[in-house]
Amino acid sequence: MLLDVENLVVEVHGRRVLRGVDLHIGEGEVHVVMGPNAAGKSSLLASIMGLSKYRVVEGKIVFNGEDVTNKPSYERALKGIALSYQIPPSIKGLKVKDFVSAMLSKYKCSGDYFIAKMLGVDYLMDRYLFVGFSGGERKRMELYITLLQNPKLAMLDEPDSGVDIDSINRIVSAIRMLVERKTSILLVTHTGHILDKLVDEGGIDTVHLMMNGRIVFSGLPDEVIPLVFKYGYKKAVEKLQRLGQK
């Protein structure tokens, strides 16, 4: 397994946000996490990334055979974990091109103009990072940065929320590119569009449903997604659990 999360319990400022999560992702696998607001989806991604306010109380995170539970986020990033933020912070003064050039030298890769063009971020290079960006520009830039990192595991936190249809197509192309690179993906999403595209292509291996800080059901996309859209999270989970497919 590339990633093994075992019985992960996490607190933020004393408030429990994850209550014992188990998650296992193999190389090149695509996993989707769904769930209602405040279920702990973003907290799970942030905890795997190692953001400082997410304090691990119990359990462990093993990445590529190494226990990274107590490693700082930058070490995890350099080991191949990437997080594409749902809402990245605006950094006034830091030009996109300067940040990109720092990333290129950090990850010893060359800038791929084609990728910037494909994601539609090429014209943003002279702007300050995320300052005054539209929803779509923010998401596309985050994916571009994730692609520059060329990670082993890409965690994408709602890459399709609040963006227009053109941006969604670009975002799907970027995810496809990650799949082609055999990057493992952990994707948090609410909406149907991006899922439809990925499901149709047979790109998703497992769908996890999260509620109240736990993964309450894991199954195949064809089984889980239609029920979620039909009944909503709570009823879908009840039905799936009754069917004994857990």
């Binding site: 990334m49 190692g50 953001l51 400082s52 700082p72 986020s73 930058y74 990033a77 350099l78 990437a82 997080l83 933020y85 990245p88 912070p89 950094i91 720092a102 990333m103 950090k106 990850y107 940065i145 990192q149």
Partner: peptide, 13 residues
């Protein structure tokens, strides 16, 4: 949060 963001992209503090 800016420091945190950059650290998550692989930069030391």
């Amino acid at each position: 949060e800016e420091i945190e963001y950059l650290m998550s992209k692989g930069f030391t503090e």
